[in-house]
Every structure is written in structure tokens, then in C-alpha cells.
């Protein structure tokens, strides 16, 4: 099998092309208990699977979440099966990503 060397991608540059109406101060996704990410989750798959890179692994093992660039796919909730630590809702009506082309 040929393993590709993957390029470093700045996903923010991609997200910059998108239109959003951010619901300031009301994130539609929340980490339920930050301690679980820090102490019980080895893989932290959300930090590389999230297609908008909303989840960041911090140096101390913590995971931080900023939902502004969220593409509302649902992956983070579904992959967090062991800990079910993601509280996931759609943004309030009219908020979040607004696809021009989809």
C-alpha cells in the first residue's frame, strides 16, 4: 500500500471562503466535561477528524472547541462513542454556516 505524505493544510484559509452567521455567545456544540477529554480520551479523534478543525489539542492534554467555523456535519458527536462527551445541537434558525453553493 502506498502511504501518502500528507501536506500541512491551513483549514482556516478554506473556511475563510465560507459565509457564516455566528450566534455569538451561544455555541451550538459543547464539550460536556472537559476533564474527560483531558484524562480519559487517548485518541482525541475529534482534533483531526473535524473537517473544520474546530477541536484543538492543547499541550496539557486538554481539548478546546471553537464552533465558529463549524460545517454542521455531526462527525464529532458520532465519533465520541466511548465518552459521549459532545452535546450537539443545530444552531438557532438562520445561524451557523450559510452555504452559497452547497
Amino acid at each position: 500500500m502506498s502511504t501518502a505524505t500528507f501536506p500541512i493544510v491551513n483549514v482556516e484559509e478554506k473556511l475563510f471562503q465560507n459565509r457564516y452567521r455566528v450566534d455569538h455567545g451561544r455555541p451550538h456544540i459543547q464539550i460536556k466535561d472537559a476533564r474527560i477529554c483531558q484524562s480519559q480520551c487517548e485518541n482525541k479523534a475529534c482534533t483531526f477528524v473535524c473537517p473544520a478543525s474546530c477541536y484543538k489539542a492543547e499541550g496539557n492534554g486538554a481539548v478546546t472547541l471553537i464552533t465558529d467555523g463549524c460545517l454542521e456535519c455531526g462527525s464529532c458527536r458520532i465519533i465520541c462513542t466511548e465518552h459521549e462527551n459532545v452535546a450537539w445541537e443545530y444552531p438557532r434558525g438562520g445561524h451557523g454556516v450559510l452555504f452559497k453553493f452547497g
Binding site: V11, K14, L15, N18, P51, L71, C73, G74, K100, F101
Partner: peptide, 9 residues
Amino acid sequence: EMKEYCAHL
């Protein structure tokens, strides 16, 4: 020219 990036399940 890239004008939008989307993700979906």
C-alpha cells in the same frame, strides 16, 4: 478559484 469548502455526512 476556490469559493467554498463544505463537509457533510
